[in-house]
Design a protein around this nucleic acid. Sequence first.
RNA 1: CGGGGCGUAGCGCAGCUUGGUAGCGCGUUUGACUGGGGGUCAAAAGGUCGCAGGUUCAAAUCCUGUCGCCCCGACCA
Length: 604
Amino acid sequence: MIPTAKEAPADAEAPSHKLLVRGGFIRRVTSGVYQYLPLGWRVLSKVSQIVREEMNAAGASEMLMPALAPTELLKETGRAEDYGDLLFRFEDRHGRDCYLGPTHEEVITDMMRQAVSSYKQLPLNLYQIQTKYRDEFRPRAGLLRGREFLMKDAYSFDISLDGLNAAYDKMYQAYVNVFTRCGLDFTVVEAEAGPIGGSASHEFMVNCATGEDTIMVCPSSGYAANVEKCEIGERAEPSGGFFVGEPSGELDEMHTPDCPSIEDVCKFMKVKPKNMLKTVVFKVVKQSEEEEKGYPGDWWVVAVVRGDHDVNLGKVSAISESKLQLADPAEAKAFGFEIGFVSPRAAVGKHQTLMIVDPDAAVGMDAAKGKPMFWATGADKKDHHVKHFNWQRDLGKDPVAANKDSADCFFMTGSIRNAIEGDPSPRAKGVALEAKRGIEVGHIFKLGAKYSSAMGFRVSGEDQQLHDVIMGCYGIGVSRAVAAAVEMSCDDDGIQWPAAIAPYHVLITVMKPGDAKSAEVAQQLAQEISDAGLDVLIDDRDERPGSKFKDADLIGVPMRVTIGEKGLAEGAVEVKLRSDRQSKGSFVAIGEATAKCVEAIEGT
RNA sequence: CGGGGCGUAGCGCAGCUUGGUAGCGCGUUUGACUGGGGGUCAAAAGGUCGCAGGUUCAAAUCCUGUCGCCCCGACCA
């Protein structure tokens, strides 16, 4: 049952999607949901087995949790809300609220709090390999982002932070082992913890130009992080100081109708995005208690970056030491912020407003050209923008002086944007960050006590007191790893599986299926190769040679053994590596073919 | 959730503007030739044209509604 197809389904775009469908590995059942045909299941099983072996070696125990669970569990941690529409939810016949697990922190913590009550039972690490459900806004690219997918999730439980760190390091190493064994080319990057929460996090990214995620790497120090997390090295202060510089011209207001994006505005005004100031308004949801006391009431944070840069909420939050959310346009307007057309001037004179300007935006002089910096920005009224904005002139006071006045701290500079290629590395002086694309196949988190404290999972410690259990969680997208392997290594003709996860190691192609001698040699070779520990598939279909070779290349079995008349006449068969695109393959004596295969597979 | 597009045979598509017998390629089945990179010839099977209404003597085609799917963006592991 290997239904191959000449043409890819019309809805497939990504190479892995097209090739896995064409090669008869998977078929779509509905949006974001796939079935694994025998070939696909073999690959998936091989990846699972590698994961299983490495998890076991790292001291984790396999178990299986249900995909179906009561929503009450998620309500304990507030994630029923946090997940929102991403969660598959429904009522059973009795009207009880249920969900299909997108991940299993609550389910396992519920089990553990019943089963574990003493520090003597810890540490523990439990994992499962199971189907997960996430009702993605937009499933895409076949197995790369599905609504149902296979995932390995592990959870560690420790009594102390030291214990967590040890468990985390062990998992980190296990992940390196897993992806190395799978033959994947990957980079480990620092990551934001995201909605799962916690204190530290790493992502394992398969390096691949078609990847969805952008990662930043420092070629010198080895530092790597995803764009959201990536720090930016110190940016030099202009010689004259931030904000200092003469105006580049008279403030020039323009009518800019129907320009919702920076790009549109730039096109309309004939200005480059890097000469725009982008101003994003946040409302403070929660601030530190100290500030709360000193300045009760609503606070606003105005973030200013260059038009070609993106504001990073995490960084703004960190610098302002408060929890933020994007301002509601109507509410902000009432306070004097015309969202979409806000300029830094809007912050002037407002109380309880903190303006943070990214260093690249806080420039008054264009050092390269040796003349005043030209800035365009919003005009603080609907459908209008201005040219020749100048920090010192247009803020109505000297921003530098304002910044130094501790009593009026509404103005500061800070690194608040996403890193982009060419930014200074945070770990090596004078080195520029490089941007790469990747596919996230693994993610590990230090959760701390987020779930245990929310769900009341405490154990008594040596000191006879109750302690929140310290948790970590560790995920591998098994089905996504399969797709990533294809994205990473394929060509126009098909897939090139790494040997460790190939559905079969050797494909024996019988040129004359009806021929008794050919059949005999095929059977004999298959037995030998199988006895040598390799997986063998025989293609004895009554097809044209061309079709067979095309299919062989498509399904991507690493080693091909061809039994044909030419060779048989001399007691030989032809062996060829899938990765070898040029040569015709070489003839070897039938007796040596097995050794040749073993050598080739072990060598990869 | 915004923008764009698509639902006609297992797969890929045409037909729709201007309503009138359901078409092509691949695949499948049968036979013959052929036999080292998707071969040739001949014959055959296979479709309530996504679904529901409406207009009409007549609807794949026009109108309304609805469902499903894909791509881009936003968002996200």
